[in-house]
Lab assay of single mutants.
Amino acid sequence: MTYKLILNGKTLKGETTTEAVDAATAEKVFKQYANDNGSDGEWTYDDATKTFTVTE
């Protein structure tokens, strides 16, 4: 399945997607991506749209 990440950071904004077997796997990928790019904030997940959002 395709999962989407929306970044609403102070310095990093945008979207990216990943293919993953489940939401937990996608979350690990996205959290590593956000960490690698210095983005940290409040995470939410919408199962209906398969979208993670991180807001700083």
Rank of each mutant, 00 (worst) to 15 (best):
M1R: 12
M1T: 14
M1H: 14
M1A: 12
M1Y: 15
M1Q: 13
T2K: 10
T2Y: 07
Y3T: 02
Y3W: 05
Y3I: 03
Y3P: 02
Y3H: 03
K4D: 03
K4Y: 14
K4Q: 05
L5E: 03
L5D: 02
L5R: 00
I6G: 01
I6E: 03
I6H: 04
I6M: 05
L7I: 14
L7F: 13
L7R: 02
N8Y: 13
N8F: 13
G9V: 10
G9P: 04
G9M: 14
G9W: 08
G9A: 06
K10M: 11
K10A: 11
K10L: 14
K10G: 10
K10N: 11
K10H: 11
T11Y: 13
T11W: 13
T11G: 14
T11N: 12
T11C: 15
L12K: 11
L12S: 11
L12F: 15
L12Q: 11
K13V: 10
K13H: 10
K13N: 09
G14L: 15
G14T: 14
G14M: 15
G14N: 09
E15T: 12
E15Q: 10
E15C: 15
T16D: 03
T16A: 11
T16E: 05
T17R: 07
T17H: 09
T17Q: 09
T17Y: 13
T17L: 07
T18M: 09
T18Y: 10
E19K: 13
E19F: 15
E19W: 15
A20L: 01
A20M: 02
A20P: 01
V21K: 12
V21E: 10
V21P: 15
V21H: 11
V21Q: 11
D22P: 00
D22G: 03
D22S: 06
D22R: 01
A23V: 11
A23H: 08
A23R: 13
A23N: 05
A23I: 08
A23F: 13
A24H: 08
A24Q: 11
T25P: 01
T25G: 07
T25K: 05
T25R: 05
E27V: 05
E27Q: 11
E27D: 03
E27M: 14
K28Y: 08
K28E: 08
K28A: 13
V29L: 10
V29W: 14
V29Q: 07
V29C: 07
V29Y: 15
F30G: 00
F30D: 00
F30R: 01
K31P: 00
K31Y: 05
K31N: 03
K31F: 05
Q32N: 07
Q32S: 07
Q32P: 02
Q32C: 06
A34V: 15
A34F: 08
A34R: 03
N35S: 14
N35D: 10
N35W: 14
N35F: 15
N35E: 13
N35T: 13
N35K: 15
N35Q: 14
D36M: 12
D36S: 10
D36G: 06
N37F: 14
N37V: 14
N37S: 09
N37I: 14
G38A: 07
G38P: 03
G38I: 13
G38E: 06
G38H: 09
G38Q: 07
G38C: 11
G38M: 12
G38F: 15
S39V: 15
S39G: 10
S39C: 15
S39P: 07
D40F: 15
D40Y: 15
D40C: 13
D40L: 12
D40N: 12
G41K: 04
E42F: 13
E42H: 11
W43Y: 01
W43C: 01
W43D: 01
T44I: 08
T44K: 08
T44D: 07
Y45Q: 00
Y45A: 01
D46R: 02
D46C: 09
D46E: 06
D46L: 03
D47S: 11
A48S: 11
A48P: 06
A48M: 11
A48W: 06
T49P: 01
T49W: 03
T49L: 06
T49Y: 04
T49K: 06
K50T: 03
K50C: 05
K50P: 00
K50W: 05
K50S: 05
T51W: 01
T51A: 03
T51Y: 02
F52E: 00
F52C: 00
T53H: 06
T53W: 08
T53L: 05
V54C: 10
V54A: 02
V54S: 02
V54Q: 03
V54I: 12
V54G: 01
V54N: 02
T55C: 06
T55Y: 09
T55D: 06
T55L: 06
T55Q: 07
E56A: 10
E56D: 11
E56K: 06
E56C: 09
E56R: 05
E56L: 12
E56F: 14
E56M: 11
